[in-house]
Write a protein that binds this DNA or RNA. Structure first.
Lengths: 244, 244
DNA sequence: GCCCTACCTTTGAGTTTCCTCAGAATCGCG
DNA sequence: CGCGATTCTGAGGAAACTCAAAGGTAGGGC
């Protein structure tokens, strides 16, 4: 019965992730962000737990801290791969980790992000990791990664934005912010939500920067044309196709 | 794991919530509001009780005070998640709590409201919390959550209201009030009921503001068109589809 | 018909929220 | 090291929101 349900559900079931870090709060925060994307996520807090969770939970990918109390991250990956080599790994590393060793990992199909990271960044990497993965999921077309809202197009791979065909230059933060907005079109996003997803998860600053960057974006994207980025007073911001 | 699958089959049953706070009155008030929505709710008053209640009662989500006599709120969440990671958590926090840590949580699958909150707000958050998780399980069918009464449509995510296709701009309070009315169509709601659900639960002001905001809403929603918001003298207000 | 009560609406003040404009710190790059 | 681009902070001001008070209006009992 249980097996049957699992099989049926497999057609449309969301991606599954295992998040491993020795800091429980971080695990919770990341799991939360992944669930917010509509994915499933569970946590583990050391290497042993991670290996056994990977066996029972069967995740599509693992978010794995390099530094664990009982085991090196690489070692954990190796053990998981002995039984399920198709599992992808996204490493979390300290900013000052040995860079070339990490680069080797990235080349092998897996990836890494340096702490402190923004939740948005983790979501990005996992998306592309799983998309690249051999496991072809039903209903997912390998289309070039373009977000489209009205006449606004964001090409993820080319890091290019155009409105009505005209190219628009954006700074990294502007790009990240626009991307987050375009991933949730016609949906009001609060400033704190934007702050914690687009800025680093431990960012201590004010929600004021969001207003500022929204204003930058408006200058570049809405400049003259019908507005796409709207303020919802007391709630947040929305992006949607300009009214006809 | 099994519990997760069991939940898929459970869609038709009402949602179940566990409310945890060390103040018994608050627990009762919140439980009452949830039951009023047609959901199931039980209370707990400390961390230990919460963890055991979560195990036996198997709620879809937990409303959890950050400050409990015996245990930190995060700790309670962590313990509940070890056996049932799919359970969503809505935190209750003091207004002056460390904002960025909380923001991180809010960004993910979980959420928080600051005390003092309006009951309406709690209901809102729980709905979106459970909806997100249900959506995650069922696939990614982003069916927009719309309340519909007659030709009046309220889109929760976009925070957008239209009547007969025409968009209507509303302030946060107006929106909250209309939302409460539309959640209980064809049902007379007393002023004190509205006051305690839409305004903060410890709001000290007069019931007079309700009349005021009803008048604002009428100006925007009924303006010229057949009336949808009706006064029931001595009883309260109703919203229903305009008579043909 | 008259009066009392309950409700509606206008007005204005206090507050909150948001936008914009500099300018300071930081980063990347030659 | 120096330059430009990027990111962030702070202050000022504008707009919007909330709410209370006061006067106006409609219903219902007598």
């Amino acid at each position: 019965m249980t097996a049957m349900l699992a099989n049926i559900a497999n057609q449309t079931e969301p991606w599954r992730f295992l998040v491993v870090d020795d800091e429980p709060d971080l695990v919770e925060v990341v799991c939360g962000a992944l669930r917010h994307e509509g994915w499933d996520a569970v946590g583990a807090h050391d290497g042993r737990e991670a290996v056994s969770a990977a066996a029972t939970y069967q995740p599509d990918a693992v978010v794995l801290d390099m530094m664990l109390p009982d085991m090196d991250g690489m070692e954990v990956m190796r053990r998981i791969h002995t039984s399920r080599p198709e599992v992808r790994v996204l490493f979390l590393t300290a900013r000052d980790a040995v860079e070339d060793r990490i680069a080797g990992i990235a080349a092998g199909g897996d990836d890494y992000v340096a702490k402190p990271f923004s939740l948005d960044e983790v979501v990005v990497r996992l998306r592309s990791l799983v998309r690249r993965s051999a496991r072809g999921r039903a209903g997912r077309v390998a289309s070039p990664d373009c977000l489209v809202v009205g006449d606004l197009v964001l090409d993820e791979a080319a890091r290019e934005v155009t409105r009505g065909g005209e190219p628009i230059e954006l700074s990294p933060k502007e790009f990240a912010l626009l991307w987050f907005l375009m991933r949730h079109p016609r949906q009001v996003l609060s400033k704190s939500q934007i702050l914690s997803e687009v800025w680093s998860y431990d960012y201590g600053g004010q929600a004021h920067v969001v207003e500022l960057y929204i204003s930058y974006l408006r200058k570049k994207i809405d400049a003259g044309r019908p507005a796409m980025i709207h303020t919802v007073r007391g709630a947040g911001y929305v992006i949607k196709a300009a009214a006809p």
